[in-house]
Every structure is written in structure tokens, then in C-alpha cells.
Design a protein around this nucleic acid. Structure first.
Lengths: 248, 248
DNA sequence: CCTAAAAGCGTAGAGCATACGCATAGGAGA
DNA sequence: TCTCCTATGCGTATGCTCTACGCTTTTAGG
């Protein structure tokens, strides 16, 4: 019934649905090759090192050859963004929703920690890539046994996605910056805060500083921090589920 | 006691603490001028339009003149990232923590909606800018009446920040992309999903699609969506507060 | 007034994305 | 087998980016 809907260029790109014609010189590369090379470069040297000429050199081709496979660098970034979610681990299906979602978040972060540049690729359209949708599916599946309606499940997963992306931006970017330039962090962070934060202008913050919360190592144990905030969210989800299923 | 700690270049930059010497030609610009011009350009034409020459032209100076004020473009981006949080609204102090935090999130998003490019600036160090810290302070203040310890309050606010940044990346970037290129969205999103999502590979997702959740307008009512997820988080916070204060 | 220090900026180098046009390879049909 | 058509490979060129360097100009302190 929906077969005649025209798929956008983006979708056909991400799903490898570009029609192949049987005429002419045979291509020496594939989109997958190019994406893989770009991911390798980004993993090793950061997203800034990903240039069309760099990737082409990596593949032993000329720069312009890539443009036969990819319309622009933005398209390549789109492919990389989905490829960053590769290697989806097998999440167990026979656990309660809370364990499932916790493992889901940890799994996603584990995968993305190997590709920290992913958070720097701007999102310009709703996610349509296969890997993206795979993760979406697994999160929904974890909520399968709760008896919630589809809309509620989607809403809960969207919240989790929001949380995940925030975590990416705050933690992964930060720890990438940390390895680049550890001095900017040092354990002087709390001290620098104390120097600069005036108790009159920032009363609540300076109380927190005085209590010593910021004096730990930076980056401190982000696992603990995340578990805390994620746990709060999941507590809210639990209450929601209880309320919904009790109301039936 | 902490007066002799050397502040990093970054901090002195963000707080305008560069020492001024009394000799030599008088500067015709200020860092604030440059930041303001850069923000204007980014607001009007996007972050991609922010180049050193473009900003210099905006100010009627030559490109290289800017480098007397800013060591690199990255420094300018750092300044812009803090400047994006300008115009902090007066949040009411006499409300319960939940209302306070809800207003806080809404306020931050309102401010950042005017500067959607902020989410694209990479974070490379813990936030130290005055506006950043101002927002941090207000969130802590909203939790002032709960009787929680400083560490708990900071943890809760960090979770809120994570959520906020995720919201920035997912919603603001998206709606920026939407105004750039509405066709990529169209209300065909659900239909395109249906075309591409195989029920065997994505069972849970295709059930959600079949239920029609994705058939609304894109971007759908993100206010509702956020209120839902944020509400879940705050439910968790409420339970935490109750548990903590009951345990005393 | 003289000098040292800072600002302003022209030039140039290296790197970037990418538009264009041509050479080339290779299947399809005669 | 020969020819044609098509798609790939890619060299060249344009216009943009950041920024290092060194010269000129301005200005305050002595």
C-alpha cells in the first residue's frame, strides 16, 4: 500500500538502495568502503582529520573519485553517523524492562565510546539509518512486557534517547577533550571555580563549591553520575508504568 | 587562601580578566564586540557563516586584527558558547523545586532556541563561563528548599543538564534542519519508515509504526514530548527527595 | 621628545570542498 | 568482433578557510 512512496535521497543512501545500472565502467569502491575508511580515520585522528582528500588517499583513489559515490561531504557524515552505531551487541530479551533499558544505555555508550566523534556530527533530519533504527527497536522491545501502549513506549524511549545524546555531548566530548589537553582540567577545577565564583552572584553554587563536591578528580566517576541520573529517570518510568497498569 | 592559583587562559578569557597594560596603541575593539558580532552572524546565517574574515568585515576591521583579541577561532567559539546563554531571565525564587526546575528547563531552552548553533560548538572543557555558571546556580537554588545535601543537588542538576543538552541536540538541531530543508521531513516520515522497516528485523519498531505513532506532523509537538520525559525524570527526583528526607 | 610596546593589517602558505571537463574502461547490441 | 553508450576515475581550477609572520602606525611612559 505504501509501495509507491518515493524514498528520499537520504534514505536510499543510508539503506544502500541506490539502483545499479549494468552499463559502463565497474566501480572500484563501494559506499561501505568509503564509510569504513572515514570511520577509521575519525577513530584514529578525530573528525577534523576526515577530509575528502584524506579518505581518498586512505583508499588509494583520487579525491574526486569519491564524489561518484557520495554527493557531498555532508552525505558522508550522515553515513558515518549511522555507522558509529555499528556492532550492535546482543541485548538479552528475558530481563525486566529496567534491566533491559539500563543495559541498552550502557551498550549504546560502550559502542559510541569507540567513536566519540559521532556526537560532533550535526543532526539535520530525523534518524533513518538502519543502525539507528536497530537501537530504537531494541529499546522498544525492552518495554515489550510492560503492557504500555505504543505511544507511551515511544515517549519513554525518546526520553532515553535525549538522555543518551546529552550524555554523549557532556561526557564523551569532555573526555575526548581531556585526552587532548589534560591541563585544562587538572584537579584545579574546583579551585578555579572557587576563585571566580562570587558568593553574592552565585550563592547556591558557591555553597556547593564550599562543600567540596567539585574537588574530586576530573573527569570524576561518570559511571556513577550517569547511574544516578539514569536511575532517577527510570524511577519515574517505573511509577508511570505502575500508574498506567493500575488504572486498567 | 586560593588566591595564588593560576587561572587558565580559558578562564581569564571567559571572565574578561586579561590584564591590560598601559602602553601602546589603544584597542579599537573589545572581546565583547567580537563575540557579539559573531553571535549576530551565527543567529542570522548559521554557525557555518562564522569565519574570521566575515566577523572582521562585520566590525569594519581586517581579518588579522581579530587575532590581537582572540588566539584562535576556537577561543571565539568558546566565547560564543557562553554568550549563547545570555539574557538570563529572572526565575521566581518562591516556588517549589519542581516548578522551579521546570521553568528552568523551559527558560534555558527558550534562550537557546534563539541561538540554535550553540549545540554545534564542541565542548572541550568543563563549563567555566559566567553565563553557564549562572544557570547552574539557579538550578541549584531551585533545589534549595529540599533539604538535600550539596552532592545530591549537584547530581540532580547534572542529570538535568544532560537532559537539556540531549534536547538541544535532538530537537533544536532538528528544527534548524527543518527550516533549512523541510522536504527531508514532510509527513512522509512515518511512511518512509514503514517502507524501510522490516517486521522481522525490527519487530517492536514496526509494531509502533503500525500503531500510527509516527504519522503526526514532523516536527510534532516537542513541547509535549519534552514535558513527558522531563516529568518522568522529575517524578524520580521527587521520589528520591521523599526517600532522603524520610530517612532523616 | 624618544622609545618601547601594542594594535592594525597585507601577504602568503597550506588545506579545504567541490564544479567542470576529459580520458578511460567495459557491457550491450549489431 | 566492432562500435556505441554510459559510468567511473581524476586533473585542474576556483574560491573559501585559518593563521604565521613581519611591517607600519599609534600611543603612553619616562
Amino acid at each position: 500500500m505504501t509501495d509507491d512512496i518515493e524514498l528520499s535521497a537520504e534514505v536510499t543512501l543510508l539503506w544502500g538502495l541506490r539502483e545499479t545500472v549494468r552499463r559502463g565502467r565497474r566501480p572500484s569502491l563501494t559506499i561501505a568502503d568509503i564509510t569504513r575508511a572515514a570511520v577509521e580515520v575519525a577513530d584514529a585522528e578525530g573528525l577534523a582529520a576526515v577530509s575528502m582528500s584524506r579518505i581518498a588517499a586512505q583508499l588509494g583513489n583520487s579525491t574526486m573519485a569519491l564524489y561518484r559515490y557520495v554527493k557531498s561531504k555532508d552525505e558522508l557524515l550522515l553515513l558515518m553517523a549511522d555507522a558509529a552505531l555499528d556492532d550492535p551487541p546482543d541485548l538479552p530479551d528475558d530481563v525486566d524492562w529496567r534491566t533491559g533499558l539500563t543495559l541498552w544505555v550502557q551498550g549504546a555508550l560502550t559502542v559510541l565510546r569507540r567513536h566519540p566523534w559521532a556526537a560532533q556530527i550535526p543532526i539535520s533530519a530525523p534518524p533513518m539509518g538502519p543502525n539507528n533504527l536497530w537501537w530504537f527497536d531494541r529499546a522498544l522491545r525492552a518495554l515489550g512486557g510492560t503492557g504500555l501502549g505504543e505511544e507511551d513506549k515511544v515517549g519513554i524511549v525518546m526520553g532515553l534517547l535525549t538522555f543518551l545524546h546529552g550524555e554523549l555531548r557532556l561526557s564523551l566530548d569532555l573526555s575526548a577533550g581531556y585526552t587532548d589537553n589534560p591541563e585544562a582540567f587538572s584537579r584545579q577545577y574546583g579551585a578555579a571555580l572557587a576563585r571566580v565564583v562570587d558568593a553574592r552572584r552565585f550563592p547556591a553554587l558557591s555553597r556547593a563549591i564550599a562543600s567540596g563536591v567539585f574537588e574530586g578528580e576530573i573527569p570524576y566517576d561518570e559511571e556513577t553520575e550517569r547511574a544516578f541520573a539514569l536511575g532517577l529517570y527510570l524511577d519515574g518510568v517505573a511509577a508511570f508504568i505502575e500508574h498506567r497498569t493500575a488504572g486498567r
